[in-house]
Amino acid sequence: MTQIEIYLLAGAAMFCIGLYGLVVRPHLLHKVMGLNVMAVAVFLVLVSVARRVPGPTPDALPHAMVLTGIVVSVAATAYSLALIKRIYTETGAVTLQETDDDA
């Protein structure tokens, strides 16, 4: 079980945990956090894949992908939070109102 494989397993585990958070937690913020956990999990996998290259400098492509991924998930999370804030100010709801009639 090399070091990289441990990180890979950790990544996979975090992905499932993130998904669990997204699925089960009713609060919208928890869901967004779950999404971020999943994102970080993928980035962990990517970075650990980059490390499998022999020699000091890791493979640059996954790193670039991670960087781009981070920026994109930041943007997405920012928009989700703004949306949550807007929903809160408009309706005071913090969960996806399952009960509203015209869902």
Binding site: L22, L28, A76, L96, A103
Partner: peptide, 19 residues
């Protein structure tokens, strides 16, 4: 109201899909 909730539902599922 409905559009906001729809948007929230849409972005959560879409982001999950993307990840």
């Amino acid at each position: 109201r409905a559009a906001l909730f729809a948007g929230m539902r849409y972005i959560l599922s879409a982001l999950a899909g993307s990840l």
